[in-house]
Every structure is written in C-alpha cells, then in structure tokens.
Write a protein that binds this DNA or RNA. Structure first.
Length: 210
DNA sequence: CTCCCGATAGGCT
DNA sequence: GCCTATCGGGAGC
C-alpha cells in the first residue's frame, strides 16, 4: 500500500474533500514541463447511494470502472466536450470520489493561459477549465494510481491553509436526487479562482489564505 | 454582474 | 434517443 492509498483511505470522503483545499496539484508532463496550482474547490461524491454519483445504484461500466479502484486512483471522464477528474477515495470496492473543481495557478501560468486562450481567473476556475489549462484533453491517465501518474497531489504538506472553508450544494447535478441538497461542495472562502462565485466575495489581498 | 440558453462528445439502454 | 459532475456568449439589469 503506497502513501496515497493510505491518505485517501484515512478519513471520510467529506473530510478528505476539505483536507485537499490548500494542497498543491502538480502535473509533470514531459511536453510542457511542470504545471501546478493550489486546490481551492472540491466536491464529494458518495458512491452507490448518491444520486449524483456516476456509481449511483452500483452502476459499473467500462467507462466508470476506475471509480471502483484503489484510493488515490484517477478517474478521468468527459462531460459534454470537457474533461474532468476525480480522485478515488476509501477502501477497495467503495466507488466514492472527490471532484477537483478549481485551482489557483502556481507554476506554469504562461502555459496554462496559452492552453486556455483565456486570462485571469477564467484559466482554472472550473473542473473542465483546469483540465484544459493543464493540457489534459484525453482519458489516457484514467485509472492510474496517483503514485505512478504525472498528475499528483502533494499529500505531505499543505502549501496554504484556508482562512475559512465554505460548504454548499454541488454544482450542475440532478436536483431531483435524494442527495441533491446535501452540502458536499467545499471551497476556500474569498478565493477568486473558485467557480461561479460573485466578485464581491473575493478577497483581493489574501485570496482567502491564512 | 446575473441569468439563461445553445453547443458539444461519448457511452448507455 | 437518452443521459451526463460544463462552458461561454449575450441580453438585460
């Protein structure tokens, strides 16, 4: 069992989703060099009993099978024409995951701007946007354990500590489901790179970090 | 700044 | 055909 498996099985999915805020997501692609950013927004998906989950009711197909892998595996999928990614969490057979929804760029901002053809917060303030910013536009890494993947999260240290964490209803899910109104979205309060937040909620000085 | 809507790819039944 | 955990532009405030 590698250190990612340990970490992503060490607490509940909700707690992990909060614990990832302020950690650094790094993508070491050979082509573009190192790209990285702070995780500022996540969502928890609670598996077979969660009507918003791709694994709802135990749904398991060749497309969603990575959700059933080991903690720390990558689940990369497409929605419309956009790619998104989850980290698989909890123990073997529990198809739960955490969607990484937004980043605050740290390393390689020029490359991300070029990949996105956009500037400012629009470079990484959404799950599809951050994947495009990183230059990931296929499912090649789907199912890879993070330990063997060029896409990794620094689980040994937190680069920044959120001043305050807001929880809310998840974005874009079927509102009729039984779990639709659960507050499983978590983000760094006042950070400008959080998706769909109002400008007046942004802290221009500290970006919501301690 | 907010709300609304059309475009878009791929897998499932 | 249907569904989906999105995005960006444009109208209207």
């Amino acid at each position: 069992m590698d250190s990612y498996q340990k970490y992503f099985a060490s607490m509940s999915t909700q707690r992990l989703a909060k614990d990832l805020l302020g950690r650094e997501l790094q993508y070491d692609s050979k082509k573009q060099g190192l790209l990285s950013g702070l995780i500022v927004e996540t969502e928890a998906y609670l598996g077979v009993n969660d009507s918003a989950s791709h694994a709802y009711n135990g749904r398991k197909t060749s497309y969603t099978k990575s959700l059933y892998g080991n903690p720390g595996d990558l689940y990369i999928y497409q929605i419309r024409s956009h790619y998104c990614f989850d980290v698989v969490v909890q123990k073997l057979g529990e198809p739960q995951g955490i969607l990484i929804r937004a980043l605050e760029p740290i390393v390689g901002l020029d490359t991300m701007i070029r990949n996105r053809q956009m500037q400012g917060v629009n470079v990484t303030n959404g799950p599809g946007k951050l994947m495009q910013a990183l230059g990931i536009q296929d499912r090649q890494m789907d199912g890879l354990p993070m330990s063997k993947s060029p896409l990794q999260i620094d689980i040994n240290s937190k680069t920044r500590i959120p001043q305050n964490i807001i929880s809310g209803v998840r974005v874009g899910i079927n509102t009729k489901g039984s779990t639709a109104d659960r507050k499983l979205r978590f983000y760094v309060a006042r950070n400008p790179f959080v998706s769909k937040i109002k400008k007046r909620d942004v802290d221009a000085e500290k970006h919501g970090w301690r």
